[in-house]
Design a protein around this nucleic acid. Structure first.
Length: 110
DNA sequence: CTGATGACGGTGC
DNA sequence: GGCACCGCCATCA
């Protein structure tokens, strides 16, 4: 039985440092085997209670994505602000500042 | 097997 | 800045 795609994605999400954010596209690019769509699908399947900082994943525009119910998660925004991540007046995160630098990941892996 | 769905992204206007 | 479209592919009915 192979490890599911979900588990691979969840492991990557666990590596996102406190105070940083990542994007679905970035997760997909690091994994190398999936598309951003699969990343979003995997996050949607995260069970509550696992130690996964799912709130640190936003879309490529630095915005919180809408869930199946059509609403953006306010819980996610609160968790991010609690880590020192700031939202602009239009409700987006400045990725130039807060996006996870994956070069740091390579350094750790080596 | 087929078809629909989705925490998305890039491109074009 | 916004909006519409298309491609992507695991998952589910």
């Amino acid at each position: 039985m192979n490890k599911s795609i979900y588990e691979r994605i969840w492991n990557l999400v666990r590596m996102i440092p406190y105070g940083n954010v990542s994007t679905y596209g970035q997760i997909a690019a690091i994994d190398g085997k999936i598309t951003p769509r699969q990343a979003g699908y995997a996050l949607a399947a995260i069970p509550h209670g696992l130690d996964i900082p799912w709130h640190r994943v936003v879309n490529s525009q630095g915005r919180i994505s809408r869930r199946a119910d059509g609403k953006e998660s306010e819980e996610q925004r609160l968790l991010l602000e609690n880590e020192g991540i700031k939202f602009s007046t239009s409700g987006s995160i400045d990725l130039d500042i807060f996006l996870w630098d994956i070069n740091l990941l390579w350094e750790k892996m080596i």
